[in-house]
Design a protein around this nucleic acid. Sequence first.
DNA 1: GAGATGCTTCGGTGCCCGCCGAACCATCCG
DNA 2: CGGATGGTTCGGCGGGCACCGAAGCATCTC
Lengths: 235, 235
Amino acid sequence: MNIASEGQELASWARMLADGTRATACLALLDGRAWTATELARLAGVSRPTISEHLNVLVAGGLLTEVRQGRHRYVKLAGPETAELLEGLAALAPRRTEIATSLAAASKRDAFARARTCYDHLAGRLGVALTDAMTERGLLDWSDGVALTTEGQRWLENLGIQVDPGRGRPLVRSCLDVTERRPHLAGRVGAALCEHALKQGWVTHITGGRALKVTGSVRDLGLPAGVVRDLLSRG
Amino acid sequence: MNIASEGQELASWARMLADGTRATACLALLDGRAWTATELARLAGVSRPTISEHLNVLVAGGLLTEVRQGRHRYVKLAGPETAELLEGLAALAPRRTEIATSLAAASKRDAFARARTCYDHLAGRLGVALTDAMTERGLLDWSDGVALTTEGQRWLENLGIQVDPGRGRPLVRSCLDVTERRPHLAGRVGAALCEHALKQGWVTHITGGRALKVTGSVRDLGLPAGVVRDLLSRG
DNA sequence: GAGATGCTTCGGTGCCCGCCGAACCATCCG
DNA sequence: CGGATGGTTCGGCGGGCACCGAAGCATCTC
C-alpha cells in the first residue's frame, strides 16, 4: 500500500522495456507472429546468448510467452492486451525523430500508416476508417467501452465471418492506433475481420513488415469515397 | 523508421520510469500538486543530491515541469496527459503484492478506492459512478471518444460551474481509474467538477493523501441509491 | 554414427548509473 | 552582517547488467 513499494513495482515493470534490445524485440513481436530467438537476435543486432537472456527476462515478466518445438524456441506476445498496451505506449512515447530520411523510407512509412496489422487485427487509416464506418452504420456501440450491436452480429453473419468463440478474450475491444492516434477495432471480432480480409484478398501482406497492400475489393466495404481513394492511391 | 531505432526510443522513454525512486516520485505527483525536491527526497528515502539528479532526468525527459521560486524548486507532472498516462500504466502494471497488511492500511486503502483525486479530477468509485450517471442521463456522448452533449453543458450551467476555457486541453477526456479499471471523467470539465465538489463540500480532503471523504450532500447528485450507500458507509 | 543447427550456460569485461558525503551556491531571516 | 535552509555540483564508490566468445546440450539431418 505504501507509495514507495508501488513505485518499485512500477519501476520493475518499466525496466523490462527500458533496454533497447528488449524494446526492439517487443515492437517486432507486435506483428502477432511467433519469432525464434535467432531471428530476434539478428533483428536487434546482438548475439544469440544476449537475446536468450533478454527473452528469459521478458517471459519471466509475463510480457511474452514461449513455445518450445524441437530445437526452436518460439516467443510471442503474451496476449492481445499486451499488444494493445505496447501499441499505446509506443503511441504515447513522444517521437523525437520525425524526419523523413529518404524517399524509400518515406514511402515505406506511408504504406505502414495506410494499412497494416496490429497484432492480429487491422490498423492504420484502413483500420480506423473501417471502425468509423462500422460505428456510423450502427454496428458498434460505444456508450460503455465498445460493444457489438445485434446489427453488427447480423452484418458479420452476412459476410460469412466466423468469430472465434475464444475463452475470456473480449468480443470487441478498442485499440489505440499508433499513427492515427485514434481507436481502431480489436478483440475477437477485430481478429476475425482481419483474417477474413486477408482470405478474401481485400488486403495482402507486403513482404518484410506489418504493412498491407489494399486491393480494389475494398470498394465493397462501404467506406467513404474519399477514404477509398486514399487507400488505393499509389498502391 | 527502422524498428531498432524505434526500440531505442521506446526504451529511453521507459528508462525514465525504470528506477524505483523516480517512479515513486511520479506516483506521488499524481495528486496534481507541486512538490519540492526535499519533500520528494524524504518520501522516496534518498538524499537531496540524489533526488536532484532524478528530477533533472524527469524534467529533461518532459515528464515533469519545474518552477523555481526563491530557493525552492517545485516540480509537477507536465500535464494532464502525463497524469493519465501514469495512472494507466500503474493500472496496467500487474500488481503482485495484493495482501492487506493491517487493518489501518486496509481502511486507508478502502478510502482511497472509494473516492480520491486523480491529478485534478475525481476518481475512485465516486469518480466512476459520477461518470456513469452522467452518461446515463445523456450528459456525455461516447460515440467518438468522449464528448459533452448540449444537455451536459446545460447541466453544468445549472450547477453554476464555470469551465476553465483552457488553451488546447480537451473539454472532456476519459482517464483509466487505477482501482476500478474503468474510465472516469477528466479534462477541463472533470477538473471544474472536482473543484466545485470541494467548494460545495460534497467531498473534503483527508489529511495525508489523495483520498477524499464523501459527505451527505452527495445524495443530491442523482447517483444510484446503492452507490450512495456505498460511498457514505463507515465514513 | 558424424555433422549441422538452434539454443543455453558460464566466465569475464566494461560500462552505466544510483547513491552518498562534503563542499559550495543561493536565498531568506533576523 | 551571520546563521539557517533549500538546492546543486563534484568526486568516488559500488552494484547491476548488457554484452560477448567459448564451450556445452539438444535436436534434426544425412
